[in-house]
Amino acid sequence: MEEGITRIGVSLPKNLLDEFDRIISTRGYSSRSEAIRDAIRTYITEYRWLESEKGEVVGVLVVLYDHHVKGVSDLLIDLQHDFHEIITSSTHIHLNEDQCLEMILVKGKMERIKVLVDKISAARGVMNVKLISAVKKV
């Protein structure tokens, strides 16, 4: 093994791994490891960008979740009430029998929005959270 390389093990649901394999094959990756390294780099880049944003912003939180997971819908509603001062509106879309998409419009201090993003991201049943933001000109 190469110097500076660490081997890890990851447990994934079969359907997620199958989809990942299909995508990396289509994109021409030579191995899962190469694709996972790229995915981790992208995750780190997005996280660093999110962490570097400051001040007042407006944006949209796009949340994909499995509505069959017990409590996830209630948690998302509770969080929206807890963060009412930064949430201007939300839209709920039923994608299929299992998945829902919530678009939450936010306006306020980036520091507070980050807290909301972290709480939603950590929720069981949430599959993906993406913040699309623009720094508000004051």
Score class of each variant (00 low, 15 high):
residue 14 K to F: 07
residue 127 M to Q: 14
residue 113 I to Y: 04
residue 19 E to V: 02
residue 64 L to F: 12
residue 5 I to S: 12
residue 48 R to Q: 12
residue 60 V to Q: 01
residue 131 L to W: 03
residue 100 C to T: 05
residue 66 D to G: 06
residue 68 H to S: 12
residue 58 V to G: 06
residue 69 V to M: 10
residue 120 I to C: 10
residue 6 T to V: 12
residue 49 W to V: 07
residue 21 D to Q: 13
residue 116 L to R: 08
residue 23 I to T: 08
residue 11 S to K: 11
residue 121 S to L: 03
residue 71 G to H: 04
residue 123 A to D: 09
residue 37 R to N: 03
residue 54 K to A: 12
residue 103 M to R: 00
residue 109 K to C: 05
residue 121 S to C: 08
residue 58 V to N: 01
residue 85 E to T: 01
residue 48 R to I: 07
residue 87 I to M: 06
residue 57 V to G: 05
residue 86 I to K: 00
residue 49 W to Q: 15
residue 5 I to Q: 15
residue 36 I to Y: 05
residue 113 I to T: 13
residue 14 K to T: 15
residue 81 H to D: 03
residue 5 I to E: 15
residue 66 D to Q: 02
residue 127 M to C: 09
residue 25 S to F: 05
residue 80 Q to F: 02
residue 126 V to L: 13
residue 130 K to S: 14
residue 6 T to C: 09
residue 54 K to P: 01
residue 75 L to H: 04
residue 67 H to V: 02
residue 89 S to V: 00
residue 11 S to A: 15
residue 8 I to N: 15
residue 107 K to E: 12
residue 41 R to D: 07
residue 107 K to F: 14
residue 123 A to W: 12
residue 109 K to W: 05
residue 10 V to Q: 15
residue 19 E to K: 03
residue 93 I to A: 08
residue 86 I to P: 03
residue 8 I to T: 15
residue 55 G to M: 06
residue 136 K to F: 07
residue 51 E to C: 03
residue 110 M to P: 07
residue 130 K to Y: 11
residue 57 V to M: 04
residue 78 D to W: 00
residue 49 W to M: 13
residue 32 R to G: 10
residue 58 V to Q: 03
residue 109 K to A: 13
residue 138 V to M: 11
residue 57 V to A: 06
residue 124 R to W: 08
residue 105 L to E: 05
residue 136 K to M: 11
residue 135 V to D: 14
residue 119 K to C: 07
residue 33 S to A: 03
residue 7 R to F: 13
residue 109 K to N: 13
residue 57 V to Q: 01
residue 2 E to R: 10
residue 65 Y to A: 02
residue 96 N to E: 09
residue 70 K to A: 14
residue 56 E to L: 13
residue 24 I to C: 06
residue 38 D to C: 02
residue 50 L to M: 09
residue 111 E to H: 08
residue 134 A to G: 12
residue 39 A to Q: 01
residue 136 K to T: 15
residue 56 E to G: 07
residue 66 D to K: 02
residue 47 Y to F: 09
residue 68 H to D: 14
residue 137 K to Y: 10
residue 131 L to P: 03
residue 125 G to E: 10
residue 8 I to A: 14
residue 3 E to S: 13
residue 44 I to A: 11
residue 96 N to D: 14
residue 104 I to K: 04
residue 116 L to E: 10
residue 16 L to H: 08
residue 60 V to L: 14
residue 91 T to P: 01
residue 121 S to R: 14
